[in-house]
């Protein structure tokens, strides 16, 4: 297996190269480092979006604002019945008056929240899935008939801009990964071409002695694979502490957006495939470049 990638002693002599003096491993290291960061960002933003979605978008609050406590109570019971009977709703919880009082205390001051001030009745609603516009409209209609003073606030609706921002950032990260892949391929192509030109004499001789195109391409593939592997190693060594530090910083934020916990096993595995995919991509690009250059020969 290693023999497929790494040059034998004779191949090294045939297409000699001063190790690590060329720019190739360093370019690969930088590209891989940036690709891993961008991939991590895309994954983190993806899981952050999902988490917010799960936490908030599947919920709504129904408020019943009526100064008359009796009417409020009747409407609350009616509203609860309406909500329970809807197929989109998973759970309905009446928020008790003491809880509402506790919620308001920081804003109004505990003294001010007295029996004199009418408090709204609050009902928490959990949807089975993310509440869509149709379900909300249906609920709104049913509620207005059963409880005229009820107002439903879907959390997902006021979180819409946050969702949109996260989605945009995520696409940006994905786009960045794509651009980095293209740039890496371009640099591998340049490197393969210049190395091909530098060894054109040797290649001509091998060609006339009966080397197949695949044999010649393999020499360059192996060299590029070695360069790419070194680059990948450096890139990983650079990226690992940076990703770890970012994870720590996000953990301290405790926002739940990019906490380390949101990086699952699958995400780590995906990140680990970045350097491997990088090496494979470099080898394939080098092969295609060299083969297309050889095709011009007889």
């Amino acid at each position: 297996m290693l023999g497929l990638i790494f040059p034998t002693g004779h191949d090294r002599r045939l297409i000699p190269q001063a190790r690590l003096t060329g720019p190739m491993p360093w370019v690969m290291a930088i590209m891989l480092f940036l690709t891993m960061l961008a991939t991590a960002a895309a994954l983190a933003l993806g899981s952050a979006g999902q988490q917010i979605n799960a936490d908030l978008a599947g919920r709504a609050t129904v408020q019943i604002v009526n100064a008359d406590a009796q009417a409020r109570q009747t409407q609350a019971v009616a509203a609860e019945a309406v909500l329970r009977s809807d197929r989109a709703v998973a759970a309905v919880t009446q928020v008790s008056e003491t809880e509402v009082r506790d919620l308001l205390a920081p804003w109004l001051g505990s003294g001010a929240v007295s029996d004199d001030i009418p408090l709204p009745a609050l009902i928490d609603v959990d949807f089975r899935t993310r509440a869509d516009a149709a379900a909300l409209a249906r609920l709104r209609g049913a509620l207005s008939r059963a409880a005229p003073d009820a107002r439903i606030d879907a959390h997902g609706q006021w979180l819409r801009p946050v969702f949109d921002l996260i989605a945009t950032l995520r696409w940006l990260a994905v786009g960045l990964v794509a651009l980095l892949v293209l740039a890496s391929m371009a640099s591998v192509m340049l490197s393969a071409r210049s190395s091909f030109a530098a060894h054109s004499e040797t290649i001509d001789i091998m060609h006339l002695l009966g080397s197949t195109h695949a044999q010649i391409a393999r020499l360059f593939q192996r060299r590029i694979a070695l360069d790419a592997a070194l680059g990948a190693l450096f890139g990983c060594l650079l990226a690992a502490p940076v990703l770890w530090m970012l994870g720590q910083a996000a953990g301290r934020l405790d926002s739940g957006l990019v906490s380390a916990g949101s990086f699952g096993l699958v995400d780590w595995l995906l990140l680990a495939t970045v350097p491997i995919a990088g090496i494979a991509l470099a080898v394939i690009t080098a092969r295609i470049t060299v083969l297309s250059a050889l095709r011009k020969k007889l």
Partner: peptide, 11 residues
């Protein structure tokens, strides 16, 4: 001749 310049006579 077209010998590979960086290979020994043997190689």
């Amino acid at each position: 001749f077209r010998l590979v310049p960086h290979l020994s006579a043997f190689d």
